[in-house]
Design a protein around this nucleic acid. Sequence first.
DNA 1: GGGTTTCATTTTGCATTCATTTTTTTCTTT
DNA 2: AAAGAAAAAAATGAATGCAAAATGAAACCC
Lengths: 251, 251
Amino acid sequence: MTSMVLDARKGGVAEAGPGETSVGEAARVPASLHGELLAALRDYLVEGNLADGARVPERLLCDRFGISRTPLREALKVLAAEGLIELLPNRGARVRALNADDLRELFDVMGGLESLAGRLACERVSDEEVAEIERVHHEMYRFYLRRDMHGYFQCNQEIHRMIVAAAGNATLAATYASFAGRIRRVRYSANLATDRDRWGEAMREHEAILDALRRRAGSELSDILFMHLRNKRKAAEQRSVSEAAEAESEG
Amino acid sequence: MTSMVLDARKGGVAEAGPGETSVGEAARVPASLHGELLAALRDYLVEGNLADGARVPERLLCDRFGISRTPLREALKVLAAEGLIELLPNRGARVRALNADDLRELFDVMGGLESLAGRLACERVSDEEVAEIERVHHEMYRFYLRRDMHGYFQCNQEIHRMIVAAAGNATLAATYASFAGRIRRVRYSANLATDRDRWGEAMREHEAILDALRRRAGSELSDILFMHLRNKRKAAEQRSVSEAAEAESEG
DNA sequence: GGGTTTCATTTTGCATTCATTTTTTTCTTT
DNA sequence: AAAGAAAAAAATGAATGCAAAATGAAACCC
């Protein structure tokens, strides 16, 4: 039973009525068939159904989604613009493999975006929103104490997402979401598992984040968030280095 | 004689010779026909050949660029994802009109990106690069003294571009270029003309930018650059308000 | 046997075609 | 004549078709 994204849509009618059709583009409002397919394809890629550097098989995906090549290729062009795949002239599309430099760049850009989000959030965040973030923070702390990586990570993601949301800038949120999807292919989640110290450090950084947010210290929060991501990046780099060493000793 | 982007390409071989092919994204690898057309269409839109909110006439553009609808529509999907146009189901594409909120968001995101660029630049900028930026800065100052808006603005753009380049992050540069293209449709250039004070203030801010860069004070430069853009935004908002008032008194 | 060359198959890129939907024009009807 | 209904025209969205390029495989040569 092939998924058939199209059928799901045919039930609906109106679509596209309210404002935010365009901005997000990422995972926001599917709106049209094209948007629907785009989201489905993006998920398909982000979930890692295709290996890094693998060719994107047009014919196969057409069957998979029950459409012809035209809309599929339109979606591929968009995904290429987003950086998920790359187009080789006369050679179709490949899943874009991120090298160490790409990751470094992506982490820094994510850091810059979160940094901005923190700064903007301080300008307009309500006490209620802060309280909500604190709630998740404490939940995360409990996961930390219990050494529950999965739960911790969920909360972590949620907090960062909430800060971006609190910035009240849909353009920023969309851009952030796009980059998050791009980086999701590499699981930087399991980093902390190998490095107990980093986990504790990250927890302390989150304390500082919340503290700065409570005081609405925008510039300070901006710095902390950037450094937080920078440290995350370093941990990820550290990990990939040790992974490479392992691979070498194994091979 | 219709332009025929294709012909231009067929002559050349290497491509990518003179760096800045176009505003955004496609600056990396034009290579294919699709990329070429995409850049051409983007320029066509950014240059304001179509009015805000106007329908994007597929047939006309096909003739204009000498291609069929298929590649054109692929390009349109990408431009929609970039935020330059918006797609209405069964009603084609329209030039996206930016309202006050959109502009506010875009300015802030640009501010965040420049802020990040400054921070990263401080980590790795060479003395030679700083000297080069200083050179352009002084050139800009001479334009300022001569009240040469056009020259001043060129230098201004160039300095910001150089800072982004000095950050050594291609992903950031591409994202920055994309947003710059998106905002270029609104000419925020002429802002200073009406507000002599803002011009002087901007000049002083640029002094501070250079000072922080010389000292490699990343966090500080980050703050200054964000505030610089924020002030630019406020000036633009001020201007649009007075314009609206004018329009009202005239109508 | 290793390497090259030729040729069939597949894939890609774009044009064309077709079914719908929207928009414009024309024709009623009051 | 104005408002509304019906029909014609144009547009959009997606499928199909076709030439050129790339990939893979068999034949060929040394």
